[in-house]
């Protein structure tokens, strides 16, 4: 492998890793804080991509479309938590799996009703459409770098939100002791609704920002969901730090695997997971 190919693969792997981290962090947050296993997380990713495709059609501007789309998805997440997810807190994981699986079926069908089964593409915005020279023969698209930067920004924002704000304090209180937080006057129902809508927004945002690179198509949520599960399992369920390490591991393993072991590309990811779990069954940063 020559150096320029290696660089491109590494950058692609890291960019994919960042995107995976964004999706997986939503998944792991919702589980770590609310104790909910959410299979519909991938469907929110897909919904984000379609929403941004739809809004770009009206506004002709990716950034405006993303902001509008995020508002819609936050509201959607909030309503969904209040109307369905909130009934699941005291129930077994089994029922959480089933209900959110039912949600996937509904959302997938909705997608087909509104947008059909065609593939759509979302254009890269003009100002980000350039490429930077990587080596003498190899260029790298600016938009991919932009994705990584945005993901880092969101991750930092999330860190500050949970670590430094009043809302973050209430979230942490609710996660560690629900009853006590309630006694202290935290409206835990609302806090959870907010956490869930943040989770939805994280998935949707990844779908939005990834849309120009990956295009928009039916079933895109499924693939990312399963890979995010692998990421979360590797990192340790509930651990945001673990989600980051897991996402990078899988992002790189998948990108390099497709080139080095093309016949086993999709199996590589699961093999990595199996190895990690053999060594640490609770994931890299999971609590035993």
């Amino acid at each position: 492998m020559d150096i320029s190919l290696f660089l491109v693969l590494a950058l692609n792997g890291i960019q994919y890793g960042f995107l995976l981290f964004l999706v997986a962090s939503g998944l792991t947050l919702v589980f770590g804080i609310m104790g909910i296993i959410n299979l519909a997380h991938g469907a929110f990713y897909m919904l984000g991509a379609y929403t941004v495709y739809w809004l770009v059609g009206y506004t002709d501007n990716l950034f405006v479309a993303i902001v509008l789309g995020l508002v819609i998805m936050l509201a959607f997440g909030y309503l969904l938590e209040r109307s369905a997810i909130s009934f699941l807190y005291k129930r077994d994981h089994l029922y959480q799996v089933l209900l959110t699986y039912g949600l996937i079926l509904v959302l997938d069908e909705m997608q087909r009703i509104f947008w059909g089964t065609d593939f759509y593409s979302v254009p890269v915005p003009q100002i980000l459409s350039a490429s930077v020279p990587l080596t003498e023969t190899q260029d790298y698209p600016v938009y991919r770098l932009f994705i990584s930067v945005m993901c880092m920004a969101v991750a930092a924002g999330l860190y500050l939100l949970i670590g430094r704000t009043r809302l973050g304090m209430m979230i942490r209180a609710g996660a560690s002791n629900r009853e006590m937080a309630q006694v202290l006057g935290v409206d835990i129902g609302r806090v959870f609704a907010i956490v869930f809508s943040i989770g939805v927004a994280l998935a949707a945002f990844s779908g939005m920002i990834g849309a120009p690179v990956s295009s928009v198509y039916p079933g895109m949520g499924e693939q990312i969901l399963i890979v995010s599960f692998v990421v979360v399992v590797i990192g340790g369920i509930g651990s945001v730090k673990g989600a980051f390490v897991g996402a990078m591991l899988i992002g790189l393993a998948d990108t390099f695997g497709q080139v080095l072991l093309p016949d086993f590309a999709s199996v590589v990811v699961y093999a990595v997971m199996a190895v990690v779990l053999l060594w640490r069954p609770q994931g890299l940063f999971g609590r035993a």
Binding site: F31, I226, I237, S266, V267, Y270, L277, P281, Q282
Partner: peptide, 22 residues
């Protein structure tokens, strides 16, 4: 079976996906 609860759900899913992709 080394895992339990939510890990078990996810790891069985992952193995099935591995088979699927294969």
């Amino acid at each position: 079976v080394r895992t339990s609860g939510i890990y078990f759900i996810m790891i069985t899913l992952a193995f099935a996906q591995m088979t699927f992709y294969y």
